[in-house]
Every structure is written in C-alpha cells, then in structure tokens.
Design a protein around this nucleic acid. Sequence first.
RNA 1: GUGGGCGUAGCUCAGUUGGUUAGAGCGCCAGGUUGUGGUCCUGGAGGUCGCGGGUUCGACCCCCGUCGCUCACCCCA
Length: 425
Amino acid sequence: MNGPSAVQAPVGTHDVLAPDSARWQFLIATFADWARRYDFSLIINPLFEDVAVFNRGIGEASEMATKEMYVFSDRGGRTLALRPEGTASVVRAFVQHRPATPYKAWYVTPAFRYERPQKGRYRQHHQLGVEALGTDDPSLDVEVVSLAWRFYAALGLTRVRLLINSMGHPECRGAYVAVLTDYLAAHEAEICDEHRPTWRTNPLRVLDCKKDACVALTTVGPMLIEHLCHECATHFAQVRSGLAAIGIASELNPRLVRGFDYYTRTTFEFVSDALESAQNAVGGGGRYDTLVEQLGGPPTSGIGFGSGIERLLLVLEAEGVTVPVASLDAFVVDTCDEDATSPLVDELRRAGLSVGRAYDARSMKAQMKAADRSGARYALLVGPREQAAGEVTMRDLRGDQSAGQVTLSRDAVVAHVTDLVKKRL
RNA sequence: GUGGGCGUAGCUCAGUUGGUUAGAGCGCCAGGUUGUGGUCCUGGAGGUCGCGGGUUCGACCCCCGUCGCUCACCCCA
C-alpha cells in the first residue's frame, strides 16, 4: 500500500455488510409488517431540517439540542441540522402537508448525535418508529405501545419490560414542577454533585438521575403521578387498563422522565433485562400534545415511539435469537460457453429464483467450490457434454452426504428447478 | 466533555532480556483429480508491525506525540 492512505468511516459510524445486514433486513421487514397490521403508512423525511424544527421540538434546554446536534450552514446561509431523532421531522411534515387525521406513519431512519461512541451508542445510529397524530384517544396510546410490544415479541425477544409513566399536560405538570422545585430547594444540599448546580434549569432531570443521592432524595419526594389533574389521571388509567385488556404488562415507574421537552401525558420506555450495560433501553416514546403547535400547526395531539436498531441487535444477540438467512436457490456452473451462461441465469432469475454464478472462466472445481460456499441449494452444470446434448446437470448440494445429480433437458430445467424450490417453501 | 484498555496478514491472534529474511490457524488462489463442492494432502499470494518523531550499533518490542478502535462516566436508542 504505497498509494494514498486508506480512508475510513468517521468516528462513531459503521458499515453494515453481510451477514450482519441480513439481521437488519429481518428487523426492518418485521417492523414494516407489524406497522402494516396496525394501519400505519410509510413516511420518508429529509435527513436534515432547519435547526428550528429540532430546537423547538426537543427543547433548547436538552442536552441533545445544546451539545449533540450536528448543526451546519449550507452554501445559501441556512442553518440546518442532521436529524437527532425521528419525531420532529414527521410532525414538521404533518404541519406542512396536513394529511387527514388520524395520521399514522412509520419510518426507519438514521439519527445523528455528536457523542463519544461506546457499546450500543453511535454518532449515526438507526431507529424504527411510528407517529400517530390527530387524537388523544387513549386507545391510540394503547395501539402505539402494543405495536412496539408485538414487534419485540415477533423478533423473538422475551426479556423486554415496559415502563410507563404520565408526564401530565402543561398545566398540571407546571404545578407539579413548582412543588418539586420547592422540595428540591429545601433539600438542595442532598442533591448529587452534578445536579446541585444545574437542577433549577430542569428539575425533572433530577428524577432521572441514577446517583444514590438523587435517588434517595426523589424517592421520598413529591411524584408527578400524584399531582396529575383529573383528566390526565383518567387518561393514564385508561391507557393502563387498555394495555392490560390485551395482555400487556406495564410497570408504573414514576421516575421515568424522558429526554425531550415535548412529551406530555403517556411516557414509556422498553428496557431489556438481557443487557447489563447502561444502554439497556431498546426503545421508548410517548405523547406530545403540544408539539404540533410549537411547529406552527393547529392544536393536534400526537404520540409515537422509536426503537434503536443497533440496540435491538445487541438484545437479539444477548437473547440468542437467530435470524433466518436467505441463501441462493441455484448456482450456475458453466465451463463451456460463457455466452450460454447469461441466458440460463436470466431465465432462472425471471422465474423468481435467486441465482449465483461464477466469473472469469474459472475451472469446474473452482466454480463448484464457489457454488458450495454460496450456500446455493442446487448447482446447475453446463459443460461441453451438456452443451452438445442440449442438457443441464442438476446437482443437489444440500441433500444428504451422498447428494445425487440428475440430467435435465435444457428446455425443462428452469421449470423443474423452480418447482423444486417452490415445493420446499 | 472526562477517564481506562488496545492497535502485528482479509479475520482471530503468537512474537523470548531490544538482535539477521516477522509467524500460526482460519480465509483466499492454484495443483493433487485434463468434468464435480463440502474431508484430506501440497504449494502460492498476501504485512512500510496504525502513523510520525525520539533513544539505540540495532526497535514489532523502550519513550513522546498523533490517529483510530474499544470500555466506562455523562447522555440516550
């Protein structure tokens, strides 16, 4: 390597190649299927937005907005940001296009945050999620949560738990924050070293703190769940009973406070007991009944959830879930006539089969080796003998040790192999 | 943003107190078998030992810097 030094992916990003990419396909296809069953349509948003979309959405006081966003100026002087999460863009698109409500959309997208990478945390990670706008019916909260729940189950995960809480709406939360502020002010000396100087900026963050000092303090302090107004308390009760009615166990966690300012009422998080690290959250979400207005739309309720693909893959591995890997149906081995290979391969592919072949006119032994490594079910051999007789030799590569082979006429081979493959499905 | 660990072949890793041409397994290519994979045998290709500087007669090894990877804190998915 005397040429230019090799380039590599930026810090905190990663490439996904086969065979790992098969697990991504499985995740995305499974999620798309469940989103379809729940009547969600696909939405595709830009990866970058006017920075105001995210600032107004996730809150200027949040860590993500202040320290973690990829903000840049384009050549036209616009201040843009790479999306750090999925919700704000969907809501922005809703405000801009005003689809009929209820509007239910699913997405899969990269998300960008400038953080130090570690296990399960990247500067570009990927999320699957849904958003549902246009009603605050608790049945919709139940649907969004259960979609996530059923999706995790469909992946084969058994150790995911649902934590749930209610953030109230702005009025009852505001009243609670006043109570909490008084409480924290009276016990300021007991707050952990990190939050003592900053707790007034966002008192709710103290609830989220994992340090012993803050945990001890807030466990006995006032809880938001106890200060909900009648409407919010009723709504939350309906969500929980709705989940129970379809057999989904939700654990009330009054300390659950998620990182974005836009959340109201129902807030939830899925954690995996299979992950021991601090990155045990595989997904989360909640209701955001003021976000549409903050982005300039009419008063519109919304709820959504997002799940990190990289996190899900960690959990799949931790739980020992294996993912089906598609292999080739056939591999064409041709030592005779390169010009005859392409039509045969083409016919097989048009018949719906996945077909591999060798290149560079390699020896039959080399091509057979390639056929074996490709995982193909059948090898289709065309040598001078078959060529002269108008035949193809079909060899079963995955049968018993004594795999047999048969000779077929060239005209019948495509239909024959197609039948065999379809019978196995 | 803070702190720890690690960078040797495509991959996983050896490499003695600092001493000549840096090794293994797997993978890859070819041959053994001039028409047959998965087992076996033989051979081959592939490395500026992350990069730069320093110490030394001599550095993969020691020192400094740098880049990268990784783990944890923080935050989150």
